[in-house]
Design a protein around this nucleic acid. Structure first.
Lengths: 346, 346
DNA sequence: TGTTAGCACTCGATTGGATAGAGTGCTAAC
DNA sequence: GTTAGCACTCTATCCAATCGAGTGCTAACA
């Protein structure tokens, strides 16, 4: 077995062919389509070895062979070639982004649309949590009785609001005072985040105001920490019908059901935040419903820190080169857009 | 033909049977399952007449017959029986609503979930436009430079906000003055809605403030009129896979594609706002994609005025009695919840 | 020893004919 | 006007035959 190189060349050819055709690949196909200079009989022997090694699977005795998840994994690790998208595509993307100046979530969602359009796969995007940003300004607006609207404005110019229900009635004057106090203490809100942490400064408020403050601060903390505003959007859910591996109704249904579960998607994309990009192939996905799919993700950033994830979902037989490239390019564009439109400083 | 009553009794039986079984109904089935006191041969003759009249369709020569859209229409108009849902179900619903006190959209979306759960059909809900409510309070919050957050609070306690981009920078003092002015003129905003309509009162503002006002007012108008905030949510999209009429992949895909189009759904539900409830059967739906479905809708109200629509989508062969009943009951519950939780006055 | 041609074999997919079964329409009798 | 009876139609299902793609093995060859 001094010639492993040839084996992998054959495997590589099989993977490429199968990704393109979707049909089990036979030894004669390889012999004819790829000039490896060896006969189909030799290829058969090698294929038999590759099957023993776990790289190929024979759906049934008289069919060709298809790559296993392990084969795709090797392909992605060894052979995959990441490139930049055509300049005229990225230019168009930038143009579309420009329309969403400041509206970050809209730009992120647009990214999903573009991804589906250029790859014909389902795409998933996660909008960033407010926790990724630094608070510049806090406002409390009185709605009525005990209801208060909390507005957080970040240094980057993002706005997030949420309604709070306090335990008792408040009035506008009280809220104004508390608002001013909070804005004076903004640094503390970010770091300490507890009433106790305000120290002596709190003396500026009277007892009843302090009581309200004690309710407001945990609410802010909650909104900042509970991934509030982090949401997953999907586009092109029905694209999977294009692929023969999902012609089976039950399979398609199963997958679609899974993709409608917000929490599942949320966990999926959130866990991908730690890596620059990730490729999960078939059974590498923990959820059983996704074992026939590959999920590619990439993160977009603000000031170098990942704040969200964009992803593509398709059958394991997918064009990894193009998809990973497209995903990376889009993540890069989105990152650029964010830093230019929000002028991040913190 | 002095005995049309019998004909319709047969038709009624066929419809009931087909709704239940989903299989073409033959004359012998009717003879055995429904005691009409006549033989299968007679039933055959009547069925032949009913086919000529356009109420029945024969998929092929040696099959039974299935009801046409026209038959369902007659059924809905003549035979349908609307009833109230079981008290223990509505009690549960009320309990769930109570958790969303004040959060109207959350309650509406919950309604979709409940509808899908109790009917096993896809459900669609439209959240109300802010235009359905009376404005009590307007706030303008300065974000940075030319960016302003507009907050509208309704008499009913709903809060709606949107970001505005003005043509030039503004400062907090200016916005405060304009906010005060707007709140003084709230009646005018509702009725006139143009800067000219403010008459002499506008003298209270200096020219630069008037200029800002001239930008803000159309924005408010836009938000009030453009159905801003009116959004359609779907639940149970994959339920259609349960029904044999959508076993055909292409059909299912076609429908799912359609149901992912926000604008289509929006038009659909919006047009249903004018009626208390509506039933659109098969080809009665204008969109070709929906010609195999029936869409049932009902409106929920605030102070007697319809402000939103909830709906169910299923195959034309659907249990109209139960579904229309469920829909009406839920619309009633939602209406009650809204009037009790928002304490509508205007 | 590695490579290759040749061949028997396997197995899924397709085809076609036979059959069963459900249901109709027509006719003749009641 | 109603019904029993029967011939007819059409689909679905089953089964056998066939096709074809692809393999694995063997023997020959460099």
């Amino acid at each position: 077995m001094h010639n492993n190189e040839r084996k992998y060349e054959i495997l590589y050819s099989i993977i490429r062919d199968y990704i393109e055709s979707g049909e089990p690949v036979g030894s004669r196909t390889i012999e004819k389509k790829y000039n490896l200079g060896i006969s189909s009989a030799t290829i058969r022997n090698e294929m038999s070895d590759l099957e023993d090694m776990g790289y190929l699977i024979q759906p049934h005795a008289s069919a060709g062979r298809i790559p296993s998840d392990k084969a795709y994994r090797m392909y992605v690790d060894q052979f995959m070639h990441i490139f930049d998208l055509d300049e005229h595509i990225t230019e168009q993307v930038r143009k579309q982004y420009r329309e969403y100046l400041g509206e970050l979530n809209a730009a992120v969602r647009k990214t999903a649309e573009i991804l589906t359009k250029i790859t014909n796969y389902t795409s998933l995007v996660m909008t960033p949590s407010i926790a990724s940003f630094n608070i510049k300004d806090v406002r409390l607006i009185h709605i009525e009785n005990e209801r208060v609207l909390l507005i957080l404005i970040t240094k980057q110019g993002l706005v997030k609001n949420a309604e709070l229900k306090l335990s008792g009635k408040v009035n506008t004057a009280q809220l104004e005072k508390i608002t001013n106090f909070l804005n004076l203490c903004i640094k503390d809100i970010e770091t300490e985040m507890s009433v106790a942490g305000f120290g002596e400064k709190i003396e500026a408020l009277n007892p009843s105001e302090q009581k309200i403050l004690a309710e407001v601060v945990p609410a802010i903390k909650y909104i900042l920490n509970q991934d509030n505003g982090e949401k997953v959007y999907t586009t092109g859910l029905t694209e999977i019908f294009n692929y023969p591996e999902f012609q089976d109704m039950n399979k398609a249904r199963h997958l679609l059901d899974a993709l409608h579960k917000q929490d599942l998607l949320s966990v999926l994309l959130h866990s991908a935040l730690s890596e620059n990009y990730s490729v999960k192939i078939g059974t590498e996905n923990e959820r059983e419903e996704l074992n026939d799919c590959s999920i590619l993700t990439a993160t977009y950033r603000l000031n170098g820190n990942p704040i969200g994830t964009i992803g593509i979902l398709g059958p394991t037989r997918m064009n990894y080169d193009y998809c990973v490239s497209a995903l990376n390019s889009m993540a890069k564009e989105l990152t650029n857009h964010i830093s230019s439109s929000l002028g991040g400083e913190g």
